[in-house]
């Protein structure tokens, strides 16, 4: 059993570069937290050039205790945030996480990242693939 698992893991790993070539992340950035803010948001664009939908299920980072997939929406003039279990990036398509829409949300760490810093984000997909990207910390609207 163990050997099979190992073999499967190896197979998965050998597939990794191929799968990753089909996923590209652009413009990953973390909003610099205003002083006093306890929550941070991060944004990025995921492009999927593959023939199959990709499902983003989790994002991790050594810089943050945990990261939530969130979406802001305005309904009848009222802004609210909803939790997302996953974000689907359609085959041959892309999804933008951007201010006022889908975003990554995380508690601000003790050592606050400031504009100019870079923090790693690891995107984890439903098929087990992981993709590490560097996000710039920016102060921008």
């Amino acid at each position: 059993m163990k050997r099979i698992l190992l073999a499967l893991t190896l197979a998965a790993c050998s597939w990794l570069p191929v799968a990753q070539a089909e996923v590209q992340v652009e413009d990953a950035w973390v909003r610099e937290a205003p002083p006093g803010a306890r929550m941070l948001a991060a944004y990025l664009t995921v492009n999927n050039s593959g023939a199959e939908d990709l499902v983003l299920v989790e994002v991790q980072s050594p810089a943050f205790s945990h990261i939530m997939l969130h979406k802001s929406e305005v309904v009848d003039g009222v802004a609210r945030m909803v939790h997302l279990d996953e974000i689907v990036i359609p085959a041959q398509g892309s999804v933008q996480l951007q201010p006022g829409g889908m975003h990554l949300m995380m508690p601000a760490p003790e050592a606050r990242p400031s504009a100019g810093d870079r923090v790693p984000l690891v995107l984890i997909f439903a098929d087990g693939n992981r993709l590490e990207v560097q996000a710039d910390v920016r102060k921008k609207p």
Partner: peptide, 17 residues
Amino acid sequence: YTHCPDVCPTSMAMLGQ
């Protein structure tokens, strides 16, 4: 509210602009 990381800082930064 200050614990709001997306809509509020976006609007406040916009007002700064």
